[in-house]
Design a protein around this nucleic acid. Structure first.
Lengths: 112, 112
DNA sequence: ACCATGCATCGACAACCGTCGATGTCTTCT
DNA sequence: AGAAGACATCGACGGTTGTCGATGCATGGT
């Protein structure tokens, strides 16, 4: 599972984006396009320390530990989360560059 | 196929988003999380008139007309595109509010 | 009235996705 | 060494998705 290339991108408007750019950004959006994963990123991003332990994240959902682990893997594989194992616990943190890559897609896209 | 509620949303950071908010925004991202659909929105948004005819969009891709029509339907159903039939042709235009809803998700989310 | 054209819909198919229970691996504590 | 806990992985399942060819449905021109 190699680090995917954190696509930087032209905004949606202006000049149309190339097929290659679309292929690069789509996986990021796909990783975020799930309610559970959105909440995961949100939870991690909004935590005081900027990171969150899997055990805490598990408690926030009515899902199996296996499922949460799967979603975290998807987000990590997409390059949206950093993973840090400390002792028995694993901490995930958001990668600001990744979120920024997605942000630039939309910020300039909207007229007002 | 009813008009889905153009979810407005708290940014990803700050306080964590609720499950309901996640359920509302996820479909928007899911609709955009495809290379073809990203390019479609991009093409439409970047066109001078702010709208594009299906016939033109068809030519921009190496896909069947049925497939393009399907993708446009997905984007329209998600509330991202407006549809306007004029004579034999159908014109699609982006709905800025929808894009803005997604934009607010990320703009405030990124520190710097 | 007929035909050509632009677009939507249908049915089918393979590929993928979200979820689960079970199991594996690694760490720490006793 | 052994047991307990935290997290990842595996295999399986039903549901969804992207794509296609074929067909249907309007509209406009002849």
């Amino acid at each position: 599972m190699s680090e995917p290339g954190l696509a930087c991108c032209t905004p949606l408007s202006g000049t149309a984006m190339s097929a290659e750019q679309a292929e690069q950004v789509a996986p990021l959006l796909k990783a975020l396009a799930d309610p559970v994963r959105l909440r995961l990123v949100s939870l991690i991003a909004s935590s005081a320390s900027g990171e969150a332990c899997v055990c805490d994240l598990n408690d926030a959902f009515d899902l199996t530990q296996a499922t949460i682990s799967h979603h975290l893997k998807v987000l990590h594989s997409a390059g949206l989360l950093d993973r840090d194992k400390r002792g028995v616990w694993v901490y995930y943190a958001v990668r600001p560059e990744a979120l920024r890559a997605v942000a630039t897609l939309f910020t300039t896209a909207v007229p007002a």
